[in-house]
Computed example of a mutant assay.
Amino acid sequence: MAGTTLPTPLYGLYQQEIGFSELVVTLVFAVYALAVITVLLVAGNYSDDVGRRPVLLAAMAFSAASAGCFLLERGLPLLFAGRLLSGVAAGLLSGAATAAVIELARPGRKARAGFAATAANMGGLGCGPLLSGLLAQYAPRPLTLVFWVHLGLIAVGCLITWSLPETVEHPKRWPPLRPQGVSVPDEVKGVFVPASVAAFAGFALLGLFTAVAPSFVATTLDVHNLAVTGAVVFSVFLASTAGQSLTPMVGVRRALPVGCGLLVVGLMLVASSLIAQSLPLLVVGALCGGTGQGLAFRAALTLIGDAAPAHHRGGTISAFFVVAYTGISLPVVGVGAMATWLGLRTAGLVFSVCVMVIAACAGTYAALRPPMERSTEPAARASDSL
Rank of each mutant, 00 (worst) to 15 (best):
M1A: 13
G3W: 09
G3E: 10
T8N: 01
L13H: 07
Y14K: 09
E17P: 03
F20K: 11
S21R: 06
L27H: 02
F29D: 04
A30E: 01
V31C: 04
L40K: 08
A43R: 07
R52T: 03
R52C: 03
R53T: 09
L57W: 07
L57P: 02
A58I: 12
S63K: 00
S66G: 10
G68L: 14
L78F: 12
F80A: 04
G82P: 08
G82S: 12
G91N: 05
L92A: 05
S94F: 13
G95A: 15
G95L: 01
A97G: 14
A100S: 11
L104R: 10
L104P: 02
R106E: 15
G108N: 09
G108Y: 08
K110Y: 07
K110L: 12
M122S: 11
L125V: 01
G128R: 02
S132I: 14
G133P: 01
Y138L: 07
P140M: 04
R141L: 15
R141M: 14
R141F: 15
P142K: 04
L159G: 13
T161P: 00
W162D: 09
H170Q: 14
K172S: 13
R173C: 08
P176S: 14
L177Y: 02
P179W: 05
P179V: 10
Q180E: 14
G181E: 05
V182R: 06
V184Q: 05
P185C: 10
P185A: 06
V188Y: 04
G190R: 13
V193D: 03
V197W: 01
G202E: 02
A204I: 03
F209Y: 15
F209W: 09
A211F: 02
A213I: 06
V217L: 09
L221M: 12
V223C: 08
H224M: 10
N225W: 00
L226V: 01
G230Q: 03
V232S: 04
F234Q: 09
V236S: 05
L238A: 15
A239M: 00
A239V: 12
A242C: 15
R253K: 14
L256P: 08
V258A: 15
G259T: 02
G261D: 07
L267K: 02
M268C: 14
M268P: 06
S273P: 09
L274F: 07
G285Q: 09
C288V: 15
G289A: 06
G290F: 13
G290Q: 09
A296D: 00
R298I: 04
R298C: 10
L303D: 05
G305V: 02
D306R: 00
A308F: 04
A308Q: 06
P309I: 10
Y325A: 02
T326I: 06
I328T: 11
I328W: 01
I328Q: 15
P331L: 05
V333K: 02
G334C: 13
V335D: 11
V335T: 12
R345V: 06
T346Q: 07
V353T: 06
V355R: 02
A359T: 10
A362W: 08
G363C: 07
A367S: 13
L368F: 08
S375L: 15
E377T: 01
E377C: 00
A380M: 12
L386K: 07
